[in-house]
């Protein structure tokens, strides 16, 4: 059910510029449906893990302050073109998604 991420990873000088677009509603649990008046239950990404070449380089907790379809950017040193970037997230309902791309 989770849609794929869009990952771009590019060497810029001695570090890699990694940008990730995630497809997620990021519902805060504080918004009411305009039509039904019912509160839309909270549904948001809680954990993000980024690994490059098999090593975890980012492990982050995020919450409801992050917008729908969030964008993340990282700079990682000590990596090379061709290294595999794997990004995965887990949300508060237990949904998971993992996508990968190679550094160019």
């Amino acid at each position: 059910m989770a849609e794929p991420m869009k990952i771009r990873a590019q060497m810029k000088g001695d570090s890699a510029d990694i940008r990730v677009l995630m497809s997620h509603p990021m519902d805060t649990g504080q918004v009411k449906d305009a039509k039904t008046g019912q509160t839309i239950p909270a549904h948001f990404i809680q954990q993000v893990i980024v690994s490059v070449g098999g090593k975890v380089v980012v492990e982050g907790q995020i919450g409801t302050a992050v917008s729908r379809n969030p964008v993340f950017g990282f700079k990682v040193k000590g990596v090379r073109a061709g290294d595999k970037v794997v990004v995965s997230w887990t949300d508060n309902k237990g949904d998971k998604r993992s996508d990968e791309a190679a550094i160019v």
């Binding site: 090593k55 917008s67 950017g73 700079k75 990682v76 040193k77 000590g78």
Partner: peptide, 13 residues
Amino acid sequence: MKRTVLFCAAIIL
């Protein structure tokens, strides 16, 4: 591999 990470989370609200 060095684990120098600049975590510049461009969290766009």
